[in-house]
């Protein structure tokens, strides 16, 4: 009889997926760990306690990242939803959609580098506002593309129906369109939140080291060869999306084809 490889394969896969999480957590709890030891000399909450000390600035970075990503996710999702309607019903819809792909698909860091002059002129270079604006510019096109499919024949008919029943544009948005798109709005918010939360290159170019989001912190710690703090900030970076995903995994995944 043939031996089934399935349980074996499954265990390997679960291990492979869980390993990075466990390893990073372990690393964040370690200190004094020189080659070739397999176990660290110190294992405890030292690094996590340091989190609370303002010196590392990690807690500050965490909240700064939350503010930036929530702002970006919120503004990109709402404006993307409303404005994608104009795109979807526009006679030149395909050209406009193509145009919104450009800023989405280009490397954000190159995009940001070419734009930094204008950020300087606007006086938002190296500022949190600047980082929010910059990240908005790459997540807004995503939201536009994302909501493209919402505005079909059926939605149009629904809007028409609302107006023949006596509703104006505002009531069609508040009473019908927004409630209808509730699920999509949540997914889009989560996705644009993640674009911002994970963003490194663009933030480093526009923030020039003055706006230290968590990704910037991770990179700085790696540069300093402070891997324990690096792992600690990585944990902070992974935790919020993981929690949100646990609450509802369907928010995380959508297909962009």
């Amino acid at each position: 009889m043939r031996i089934s490889l399935k349980p074996f394969f499954l265990s390997i896969m679960v291990l492979l997926i869980l390993f990075p999480f466990v390893y990073l957590l372990w690393l964040s709890l370690s200190a004094d760990w020189s080659f070739p030891q397999v176990m660290p000399d110190y294992f405890g909450l030292k690094n996590w306690k340091a989190l609370l000390i303002s010196e590392t600035g990690l807690l500050r970075s965490f909240f700064q990242s939350v503010i930036i990503s929530v702002s970006v996710g919120f503004t990109a999702t709402l404006s993307g939803f409303v404005i994608s309607r104009n795109i979807a019903y526009h006679p030149k819809k395909n050209t406009l959609t193509l145009l919104s792909y450009f800023p989405y698909i280009i490397s954000p860091v190159v995009f940001g580098a070419c734009l930094s002059y204008f950020f300087l002129k606007l006086g938002i270079f190296g500022q949190m506002t600047g980082v929010i604006v910059a990240q908005f510019m790459i997540s807004f096109p995503y939201a536009l593309i994302f909501f493209n499919s919402f505005w079909g024949e059926k939605t149009k008919n629904m809007e028409d129906l609302v107006s023949t029943l006596g509703g104006n544009r505002l009531s069609s948005f508040t009473k019908v369109l927004l409630p209808l798109a509730k699920g999509m709005l949540l997914v889009c918010f989560f996705q644009t939140f993640l674009i911002s939360w994970f963003e490194y290159g663009l933030t480093s170019v526009i923030g020039v080291g003055k706006v230290q989001t968590l990704t910037i912190k991770v990179f700085l710690f790696i540069r300093e060869a402070n891997y324990f703090y690096g792992a600690l900030s990585s944990c902070l970076l992974i935790l919020p999306p993981l929690v949100l995903m646990y609450i509802n995994k369907k928010y995380v995944f959508n297909k962009l084809t």
């Binding site: 059926k154 629904m158 028409d160 129906l161 609302v162 107006s163 023949t164 006596g166 509703g167 104006n168």
Partner: peptide, 14 residues
């Protein structure tokens, strides 16, 4: 449309 007081019904119930 919203001021005409004319309701248009589709084949789909919508």
């Amino acid at each position: 449309a919203e001021k005409r007081n004319i309701v248009y019904l589709y084949q789909e119930d919508l």
